[in-house]
Design a protein around this nucleic acid. Structure first.
Lengths: 214, 214
DNA sequence: CGATGTGAATCGTTTCACAGCC
DNA sequence: GGCTGTGAAACGATTCACATCG
C-alpha cells in the first residue's frame, strides 16, 4: 500500500472482487492464489503480486481470507459506499442503463436522468422522471451527485461532459464514440460498443485465418 | 506487416479509424502523426510506431494519407465487409443493442435475436422477430452467422456461449459479468458495465483524495 | 507439505532522439 | 522548415523460481 497501485492491477481488482463475492456467497472462507487465478484465466503469481500491493494477509499453506479481501478491495475501489449517479441521455442505451440490475445491486444508484429532447422530458424512468438538460448543471450541483454516465450522441458528448464537470462531477462513464477532453481532476472511463466489436472482428479474422492455414 | 501486430496496437486501431473517418468526412486528405495523436490524447511517436506495423505510407514533411489509412485499417480489422451478428438475450440491454445506431452504421448487422423466455419469443425486435433459445444452434448454423452478442444473465452466460460455439460462431461479445471459458479458436471480448463503474470509482476516489490533501 | 511473498529474469510497450526525406 | 521511420533507452507488467512460513 506504500506505492500507488499500478494501473494494470487496478483494472483487475473489480474482477477479483466479483469472483470473491461469488465465492463468499457459496460459503468459501479462504482461497489460494492458484484457484482464484485459474478461475479467471490468469497465473497464480500475478494474483499474489496484485494482492501484495496492499498488505500481506495471505497465510502460507492456507490461502487468502475471502471476506477480508472483499472488504479490502471495496475500500480500495471506493465501492464501500453508495455512489449516486446522473444519467445524461435517455435514448435506447439510457433506458437500458436505468433498468440495469447490475448497477442497482452494486454500489451505484442512478438518481437523476436528463435529456435534451423535450419529448422525453417528463417521461418516467424507473422511479425517476426525465428532466430537461437545461436544468442539468444546477440540479446535479444541488443534489451533490459525483458521477455521470453519458449516453448521448457523439456530436453533443463533449458539451455534455463539460456541463457535468461544471456541475462538480468527478467521474464520467462515456458511451459516446468520441475521445473527451477534460481537466485532469475528473476521472473518465470510456465504453465504445462499436470499438469493442471492431476489436472482436480483428481477433475473429485473425483466428479464422490461422485456422484456415498460413 | 511481417510480424503479428502487437495487442496494444490492435486496441488502438479502431480509435484511429474512427478519428480518421471523422477527418475524411470533413475533407481532410492528409494528417500528421502529431495532430492525430493530440486529438486522441496520445504521443506522436506512438502513432508512427503503430502505423509502421503495416507498411510505410506516411510521407515526410506531409503526413499520412487519410483515405489510404482508412482502407488499410478496415482491411486489418476485418470491417471491410459486413459481419452478421446474432443477439442472445432480449432483456433491457438486448433491446437497446438491437436499436443501437452505431452497429447499423458500421460493419455489424444483427440478423437474429434469441431469448429463453417464452413471453419474449415472437416479439418484434426492429425488423426481426425474437426466436426461441431452443432454435439457436440450428438457426445460427443455418444462417452461417459468425458472431454473437451475449446479453444474458450471468448464470446462463457460459451455457449460452457454449451453444454459440457449438453453432459455429467465431467471435463473442460478452456483456454478462462472468469470465467465459471457451476454446482457443473462438475470440471473446468482454464488456462489463459494473466493472467499468468500479474502475471509475477507484479513479474518482483517488483523484478526489489527491485533491483533498496528501 | 502447501501456499505465500518477492527478488530476478523476461517480455512487451512507450518514449526519446535523431538520421533521412520532402 | 516539417515530418516520417526507427534504433535505443526507459518504463511497466508478467512470469519464474525459490526462500520462507504455518
Amino acid at each position: 500500500m506504500k506505492t500507488p497501485i499500478p494501473k494494470a492491477v487496478v483494472n483487475r481488482l473489480p474482477l477479483y472482487l466479483r469472483r470473491l463475492e461469488y465465492l463468499a456467497a457459496g460459503g468459501t472462507e479462504t482461497i489460494s492464489s492458484r484457484e482464484l487465478a485459474e478461475s479467471l484465466g490468469r497465473k497464480d503469481a500475478q494474483v499474489r503480486k496484485d494482492f501484495a500491493c496492499f498488505g500481506n494477509f495471505g497465510r502460507p499453506g492456507v490461502g487468502y481470507p475471502v471476506a477480508e479481501l472483499i472488504t479490502k478491495l471495496r475500500g480500495i475501489l471506493g465501492t464501500d459506499h453508495l455512489w449516486r449517479v446522473a444519467l445524461v441521455g435517455f435514448g435506447n442505451l439510457g433506458r437500458a442503463l436505468v433498468a440495469y440490475k447490475g448497477f442497482q445491486k452494486r454500489a451505484f444508484k442512478i438518481q437523476a436522468v436528463f435529456d435534451a429532447d423535450p419529448a422525453k422530458v417528463g417521461r418516467r424512468a424507473g422511479d425517476l422522471v426525465v428532466q430537461s438538460a437545461a436544468e442539468m448543471v444546477p440540479e446535479i450541483r444541488r443534489l451533490g451527485i459525483p458521477m455521470a454516465i453519458l449516453a448521448v450522441p457523439a456530436e453533443v458528448a463533449q458539451a455534455a461532459a463539460d456541463r457535468c464537470v461544471e456541475a462538480g462531477v468527478v467521474g464520467i462513464l462515456n458511451f459516446a464514440p468520441v475521445t473527451l477532453d477534460l481537466p485532469g481532476h475528473v476521472a473518465v472511463n470510456h465504453v465504445d460498443l462499436t470499438l469493442c466489436m471492431e476489436q472482436l472482428s480483428f481477433l475473429a479474422s485473425t483466428l479464422s485465418r490461422r485456422a484456415a492455414g498460413p
